[in-house]
Each structure stands twice: as structure tokens, then as C-alpha cells.
């Protein structure tokens, strides 16, 4: 069966995100006073051939922890859909 996995990689809490801060400041300049904080990240969309959803989740999580995210500075979330 074919599954689609979305892997969302973002910086861990406490790791400085100068890109997010710069975008946040620009939004403030545009008048978005109610946007308090911006965090940047990456989304990877994986197409996975697997027997079950949990197999697909496992494959995506392994891909994320081995390559897509750097565990020193980043965290990730995996979401699998059919």
C-alpha cells in the first residue's frame, strides 16, 4: 500500500533561530502586532510503500532521525496519511 508521510523538522526549544526572529521582526514592521513569535522549520513529504500504517510511520521516523533531522539541534514530528 502507498502512504504519504509528512515529516516536520524544527529547531529544538532553546536553540537560537535567527531566521525566525528576522521574519518575526518583519511581520511586526508590517503591523502584525499580535504575532508574538515565529519559528522556522522544514516539511518533507515522503511517499512510502508499506504493508501497514505503522510500518510507514516507522520508516518515516527512521529516515527523519538518521538523515532529515539533526538530533543535536532539531526535533521532528511524523504524520502518515493514506
Amino acid at each position: 500500500m502507498k502512504f504519504q508521510a509528512k515529516v516536520n523538522v524544527s529547531l529544538k526549544e532553546g536553540v537560537l533561530d535567527p531566521q525566525g526572529q528576522t521574519i518575526g521582526n518583519a511581520l511586526l514592521d508590517l503591523g502584525f502586532e499580535n504575532i508574538l513569535k515565529v519559528k522556522t522549520g522544514k516539511i518533507f513529504t515522503l511517499e512510502i510503500e508499506a504493508e501497514t500504517e505503522s510500518d510507514a510511520t516507522r520508516a518515516a521516523s527512521e529516515a527523519a532521525s538518521r538523515l532529515l533531522a539533526n538530533p543535536v539541534i532539531e526535533q521532528f514530528k511524523v504524520e502518515v496519511v493514506l
Binding site: V15, L16, P18, Q19, T22, N70, V72, I73
Partner: peptide, 11 residues
């Protein structure tokens, strides 16, 4: 080696 190298602080 331990740690990581991130984008320069001034981007």
C-alpha cells in the same frame, strides 16, 4: 565530533 554548525547569526 560533538555539536552542530548552524547558520551564521547574521544570516
Amino acid at each position: 565530533l560533538p555539536g552542530a554548525l548552524m547558520k551564521n547569526i547574521n544570516l
